[in-house]
Each structure stands twice: as C-alpha cells, then as structure tokens.
Design a protein around this nucleic acid. Structure first.
Length: 409
RNA sequence: GCGAUCGUAGCUCAGUUGGUUAGAGCGCCGGUUUGUGGUACCGGAGGUCGGGGGUUCGAGACCCCUCGAUCGCCCCA
C-alpha cells in the first residue's frame, strides 16, 4: 500500500460518493426542481445543517424512537446538544418564528440539501441523504394544499417519471376528528390484541395509526374492517378535504384515495399524501408530506397553519435513470508538444465564447487524436507541427468549423 | 435493532470436491500498424482474493469474528 502510516480510511456507512452519470441524474433532479419552484413562485431559502437538538425533539415529540435512536446528536464544545438536521420542516418552522418571517405570511419557501438519519442503509436509503423541500406557512386554506400538490405533480412530470408514480391522498381531519378516529382504532384493535402481530401489539401502545399499514398477514383482516376516518370527520374537515380534491381535479392532478395513509406525528392535520412507485422495492415513497397545523405551537410560536412536502433526491434520481455526461463541444488535440501553447490559447478563446472544450495533450502523441475521437466531442481541433511549421486541422461540419476557425484566429 | 444473500485487478466477472507462481474481457500506460483517423497486433503496470483470527501438510474456497453492500422486517420526521 502507498500509505505506510496505515490503511486508507473508509467512507462512513450510509454515505455516498456520487459520480458520473449518477451525479448528472442528481443534478438534473435539482435543476428541474429549481425551475419548477420558480414557476410556482416559491422563494429560495438556505437553512443551517444543524440546530439545537430541541428544535427537532420538540417538533417530533417523544412518541417514537426517532429522537432517542435515529438522530445524529452531539455536544458541542460549549456543552450544548446539537443535531444534524434529519428533516427540513422543523428548522424552517423555527426560522419562521425566530426570524420574523410571519411578516411574509403566507410564505412559500423551497430548499434542498443533505439530511442525516441514523438508520440501517438500503438502496435508496442513506444516513446522509438529500431532499427537495417545499413549504407553505401561514396558509390555512385548502388552495395551499392544492398548489403544493400541483407543484409536486408538475415536478414529477418534468422529471419524466410521472407515469410510474401515483399520488396517494388521505385526510386525517382536524384535531377532534383525528382524536376520535384514533380512539376508535385503539378500541377496535385492543379487542383483538392477542391475534395481532407482535409488532402491531407494540404499535397499539405507541403508534396505533401505524397498524393500518402493517405488512404482516396476521394484521390484514383486522385492518380491513377497522374504523374509517371518514366516519369521524367533522363537517368542517370533510369540507376541507372536498375542497382539496376538487382543486386537484381542477388542476388536472390525478390522485387516489388511500384511507390507510397516515402520519405518525401528532402535529399533522387534514391532508396527508405520498407519491408512490412500485419500482423501488420497499423504498417506494418518492415524495411525501401533509398539513402540519399543530407544529408551530410545539416550538413555542403562535398557532400557524402550514403544509409542505419533501422528496428524496436519490430516489428521484434512480427513477430518472442514467443520464450521460455531456460531450465537449470541442476537443483540442496536441499532436506535437511544441504546439501546446497554441492549443492553450485556443482553449481560452473557445471557452470564452461559450463552447465547452477539453484538452488532449498527454500520453502517446500518436494516440491523442484517437482518444479525442472516442471522447465523442462535437468537433476536434488538432494542432500539429511538421519540420518546425505549426498547423491545425478542424474536424467538424462546415458551420462549426467556420465558427471555430474564426474564434481561434 | 432483527433476518437473509454477497464481497477476487480501476470496472464487469471466472476460479472444478481445499492442491504448483490467482485468470479473462474492458479500461489504463507504452510500442508497432493504419493515416483525415473510433483499426489491428505486441508488450506493460495494476490484486496482502474486504479486514482479523482459526482448522489444515496446504485456504480465494471451510469455521468464527468484524467491516461494507444488497434484499426484506422495524422505523420512516
């Protein structure tokens, strides 16, 4: 090994070094998101990668293992507990309160970047992963939900992956509807507790709504005849949901009702949704979100309605598929080393004119031209010298050759 | 956190029930050939067989541990 001091350190489990065609697919997702976000007039925000642990602990609550087991938390040198962000929403909500963003309400913001969760890695699931995020804060009307979903729908269409993806939609109702439904579910499942799977018996105590999407066959029969949210919706909540679905229909967004679609956290109200594909195995949710009217209060802010979604960039990139790296407009070949300066000068002129250009000047001189040919450039500009007399040739179609000739002379 | 499969060159992989000095294709480097060109041929570099321990006269292969990837489960903000 070339490092006598020891072995090369390995990448951290669950991180990725993204390169080549994968990196191009990743960039395509981000660029498409940026374009669509502007069409819907979402304002760009950049958020800290870490926050006080409290920001996430208070917004997520103590009901699940998330806070205790699945966050990257550490003490800084001042003894303060900090956490690498596991999601965007809590930090944005914190900023809304602490930075006076209330004055901009209703506020539409979008961002993207890395997030960190201490989970078992799988394909499409990493410890450092990346999401797109869009939020509308301070808007309690169903039109906000519609706007957000229309944006998500257009994003998937512009990424070219809408065909394999369906929008699953549900409502959790307002606070009272949700609580009544939850109580009915607990009662229903408690009556048959002994026949449920071990996991679901535990969920009954910790997170009963989650029994609804259990994959265990023992649970399926009891899930099928479980109480439905529709029977517990208040008139107001039903109207809200009707407005959302009517809006989606008007916007031309296809959706499917999925009464088993839930959110684990208490602050969710009304609309919950996921765009799902069957092409990514168990990691089928590609974009998900909902209305979180209860969140601001848990962070000590004034009650503020809000709705948002996030989407995994890696999963979107996998659906987008391989994207080739662009070929150079011009490959500049130095067939005789004494022509290197001429080639460098030409490169500068080509690039200044907006043409992408790459230099081929290393390795065996007689193989450089072949390498340039194989690199697939749109045009090849070759510098050679015979008997001390320099010359260049351009291999390209006529308009390109004339343009390059004009640029470099 | 639980279960399963896998890990051999830069990449994709072969390697017979354990048996000399671990192979191929592609890629890379060099040479020859061709010479408005993506050709062909020759040669070369590159591997502590993921890491550690064990069994054995002998381990890439068998056993244990460990790291990592993959597929499920759990969780999914």
């Amino acid at each position: 090994m070339s490092n006598p001091a020891g072995k090369t350190p390995q990448a951290i489990r669950g991180t990725q070094d993204i390169f080549g065609a994968d990196a191009e697919a990743f960039a395509f997702v981000v660029e498409t998101f940026e374009r669509v976000r502007k069409l819907y007039r979402f304002r760009r925000v950049e958020m800290p990668v870490f926050e006080r642990t409290e920001v996430f602990a208070r917004s997520i609550g103590e009901t699940t293992d998330i806070v205790s087991k699945e966050m990257y938390s550490f003490e800084d040198r001042g003894g303060e507990s900090l956490t690498l962000r596991p999601e965007f929403t809590a930090g944005i909500a914190r900023a809304f309160i602490t930075d006076g963003w209330q004055q901009h309400a209703p506020l539409k913001v979008a961002t993207h970047g890395p997030l960190f969760r201490y989970e078992r890695p799988q394909k499409g699931r990493y410890r450092q992963f990346h999401q797109l995020d869009a939020e509308i804060i301070g808007a309690g009307e169903p039109q906000a939900d519609v706007e957000l979903l229309a944006m998500a729908d257009q994003l998937l269409k512009e990424l070219g992956i809408a065909d394999g993806v369906t929008l699953h939609l549900n409502t959790l109702g307002d606070g009272n509807s949700r609580e009544a439904w939850r109580a009915a579910l607990v009662e229903h499942f408690r009556a048959v507790k002994g026949e449920l799977s071990d996991d679901s018996q535990e969920r009954l105590e910790k997170n009963p709504l989650r029994i609804l999407d259990s994959k265990d066959p023992r649970d399926k029969a009891f899930v099928a005849d479980a109480p439905k949210i529709d029977d517990y919706l208040s008139g107001e909540a039903q109207d809200f949901f009707d407005s959302v679905t009517a809006g989606l229909d008007a916007a031309g967004v296809a959706w499917e009702r999925d009464p088993a679609l839930v959110r684990g956290l208490d602050y969710y109200r009304h609309t919950a949704f996921e765009f799902v594909t069957d092409r990514l195995g168990a990691q089928g949710t590609v974009l998900g979100g909902g209305r979180y009217d209860g969140l601001m209060e848990s962070l000590g802010g004034a009650p503020t309605p809000a709705v948002g979604w996030a989407a995994g960039i890696e999963r979107l990139a996998m659906l987008v598929g391989e994207r080739g790296e662009a070929f150079a407009d011009v490959a500049v070949v130095v067939e005789s080393d004494e022509m290197l300066a001429s080639a460098i000068a030409a490169l500068g002129k080509l690039r200044a004119a907006g043409l992408s250009a790459e230099l081929h000047a290393s390795g065996s001189p007689r193989k450089r031209f072949d390498k340039a040919v194989r690199a697939g450039a749109g045009a090849i500009l070759a510098f050679d010298a015979r008997d001390g007399i320099g010359s260049h040739r351009i291999k390209a179609d006529d308009p390109a050759r004339e343009r390059i000739e004009a640029l470099i002379s």
